[in-house]
Computed example of a mutant assay.
Amino acid sequence: MPDQIYLRPIGLAPSPQSEEGDCIRLAGGLTHAHRFAAILRRDGEVIERWRFTPATVDEMLGRLPDGFGADAEAQWANLRMAHPPIEMGARTVRLDQPQIMGILNVTPDSFSDGGKFLDDPEEGRAHAAAMLEAGAAIVDVGGESTRPGAPAVWEGDELARVIPAIEYCAGMGAAISVDTRRPAVMDAALHAGAHMVNDVSALRHDPRSLELVAARACPVVLVHAPGKGDDLHGGADYESVVFDVFDWLRERRDAAVEAGVPRGRIVLDPGIGFGKSLGENLALLNALPLFHALGQPLLLGASRKRMIGALSNEAPAHERRGGSIALAIAGMNAGVQLLRVHDVAETVQARNVWRGLRDAALTDFSDLPA
């Protein structure tokens, strides 16, 4: 593999004044970063590492070996990029603070809700309404379980599950994402009122997906999953999970752009829980600020996932709320723009308190002498 350079934020700050202005507003959000590492990787191994701050970035760039300056400068610009809002029909989802995407699974085998929203459409409708009332910016509708070992779903069954749910969410005026990897389902969902495609295969499952998303010019979430075909979790073989997922997402972003998907409509998701061990998931979560160097908004989907149970005496899915909130806050601290969650009201409340702390930090040095 060719040599690669990565610019990773390694020191976050509560406010600009805490570092006397020597920091950046990470990805245009409410998180500030002061210290960074420029990491040079060759043949899968880190061979050089330089630490710098915004005040010394030009010096660092001047020390890089020939051929890396342009990529490093692009990543530095990406880390400071303020992303425009996502337009979803009549709804505008701003990306200058974390936004909550509520999960509506209409499957018979969901690990989190046991299929109740499929069996009883009125229950699904009430759940969607409750998430919107609680402050969800987007409702993500899915008709196929993607947990390890889940069977593939026939396209006709998936359509029968998601289209009614999308229609009643559209009737509420919701911004809607469809969680699918099949182009026919994407197309029907967009016609039924969905605005965004959330593809756990990053538009690899069917080559027609790239063409469809490009033609519809809709926002799309590209999720990292190592597997191909029906097994999204298989085939994982990482030299360094953080850098490998970064490179993979960059390749999928570039493939989408080459196919005609506007870059401003691409969201990236590192795929927590998809073909990754507990240690690999934790490494990715700790490295989330790095992924802003790709220059796209980020989505984090860690709610109620298996790793929470592994860290919590094997707590079952319905008892993983506390761990889910902890991971959501970790995402907020890392500057992640979209949080895909089951527990919307609790996560919105955590976000609002987190935002209050961030806002207060901008003035908490005002009583110090000049």
Rank of each mutant, 00 (worst) to 15 (best):
M1G: 03
I5K: 00
R8V: 11
I10L: 06
Q17H: 07
R25K: 13
A27W: 06
G28M: 13
G29E: 12
G29T: 15
A33Q: 12
H34D: 09
F36A: 09
A37S: 14
A38D: 00
I39F: 04
I39W: 04
D43Q: 13
G44C: 01
E45Y: 04
E45Q: 07
V46H: 05
R49S: 09
W50Q: 14
T53R: 14
A55L: 13
T56G: 04
V57I: 14
M60C: 15
G62W: 05
P65Q: 10
G67S: 11
Q75W: 06
W76P: 01
W76K: 07
N78H: 15
M81Y: 03
A82I: 05
H83P: 03
P84C: 02
P85A: 15
I86C: 08
A90Q: 15
R91L: 00
R91A: 10
V93L: 04
L95Q: 10
Q97H: 14
Q97W: 11
I103L: 09
S110K: 08
S112H: 10
G115H: 11
K116V: 15
E122R: 14
G124T: 09
R125H: 12
H127Y: 13
H127Q: 14
A130S: 12
L132F: 07
A136N: 06
V139T: 05
V139P: 11
G143V: 08
E144K: 06
S145I: 02
P151F: 12
A152Y: 03
V153N: 05
D157A: 13
D157H: 13
R161M: 04
I163R: 04
I163L: 14
P164T: 03
A165H: 04
A170I: 01
A175R: 11
A175W: 03
R181W: 13
M186F: 00
A192Y: 13
A192H: 11
G193Y: 03
M196V: 11
V200F: 08
V200S: 10
V200L: 03
R204S: 10
H205R: 09
P207S: 11
S209I: 09
L210H: 08
A214E: 01
A215R: 14
A215V: 01
P219K: 03
V220F: 07
V221C: 15
P226W: 00
G234T: 00
A236F: 03
E239W: 02
S240M: 02
F243W: 11
F243V: 02
D247Y: 07
R252F: 05
A259Q: 10
R263D: 15
R263F: 03
R263W: 06
I266K: 01
V267H: 01
G271Y: 03
I272V: 12
I272H: 01
F274G: 00
E280P: 11
E280V: 00
A283D: 14
L284A: 00
L285V: 13
N286K: 12
L290E: 01
Q296N: 15
S303H: 03
M307Q: 05
M307H: 01
I308C: 06
I308L: 08
L311W: 00
S312K: 04
E314Y: 01
A315R: 05
A317S: 15
H318K: 14
R321F: 07
G323D: 08
A328F: 05
I329D: 03
V336M: 02
L339Y: 00
R340I: 04
V344P: 07
A350I: 10
N352A: 00
R355A: 02
G356A: 08
A360D: 06
T363I: 14
D364P: 00
F365R: 15
L368T: 11
P369W: 04
